[in-house]
Design a binder for these strands. Structure first.
Lengths: 153, 153
DNA sequence: ATAACGATTGCAAGTTTATACAAAAATGAA
DNA sequence: TTCATTTTTGTATAAACTTGCAATCGTTAT
């Protein structure tokens, strides 16, 4: 529990779980978990992790992840086992083809794990329509989905 | 071009169009467009607009809108009454999220009552894709749907 | 082992952002 | 209008964040 990667992982976790409003707060939370660092390091860590200070609905500042690909790094992920055949874009939309009958299951995984990058999905039998949130590029969507599902190019 | 609302609107525009990396930069850009304000005011404006400093793909800081939907809180609340959780737009399309299993029922209501503003809907389990007719703005669609959902409950 | 090189970190200084407070402007009621 | 009340803004300052630099830590090659 002392190397950089562990610390980064812990920061992610803390930011997701706690309402962190400043780097000082985060620093205390980390200290509490056995990591001794300076605020300067946290500034750099947060930059690496693309965690930024945002505004929640109550108008208060709160640190949040901007890059959602972290989700796929979470220990176990069913979607990876499920596989998918292709992913293509048309205008703002993405269409994923899956093995016959698998669309529903994979769509459910996407809904659950793709986070705010995806507004929603609609699944047929072997086709999933994915509606990305505005502001997310094709590359970003592809990255998020491909992290989620192994077999994508 | 001198009141607060105009300024806020302009700030939004500038942030979307230019790569703004600090409030000082934004200040200059606004000055350039005829608004004389101090950094303190900008800090407050950005808070109101929920525009925050984020990280772009190149790892540089950039101000961005946090709230990607322009949905009024009213319609969001109305939607919630029925079991719909949110309504957001992506390009010409609208996506409504509902409680699990409710999408079909709500989509049917929309088809039946939304009139000419909506070409059609496609429902998954908890997601409805709504295709507006060309020429209808997001605000119009939002109003129509929120009225509709209000009447349903 | 040790030299060389890259990565990581703390320190301190610099930059940027948030806010307390008071003044000014807008709003409203009588 | 005039007074009271709320909203908006600037000033000044505090708080929060970023970064250059040098020291340290880790690797790898010799």
């Amino acid at each position: 529990m002392k190397n950089k990667n562990d610390r980064l992982q812990t920061i992610r976790q803390v930011v997701i779980e706690c309402k962190i409003g400043s780097q000082e707060e985060l620093l205390k939370e980390l200290l509490h978990r056995g990591y001794t660092v300076t605020q300067a390091t946290l500034s750099r860590d947060l930059k690496r992790l693309k965690i930024t200070k945002t505004l929640d609905n109550t108008g208060e500042y709160r640190y949040r992840l901007t890059d959602l690909s972290f989700i796929s790094e979470k220990s176990e992920n069913n979607a990876k086992a499920l596989g998918a055949n292709s992913l293509e874009f048309s205008g703002p939309l993405a269409v994923m083809k899956t093995r016959s009958g698998y669309a529903g299951a994979i769509a459910a995984e996407i809904d659950q794990h793709a986070g705010e990058a995806v507004l929603g999905t609609i699944a047929g039998d072997d086709t999933i329509l994915i509606i990305p949130r505005e502001g997310f590029s094709r590359v970003e969507i592809t990255n998020i989905l491909s992290n989620l599902i192994e077999n994508l190019s």
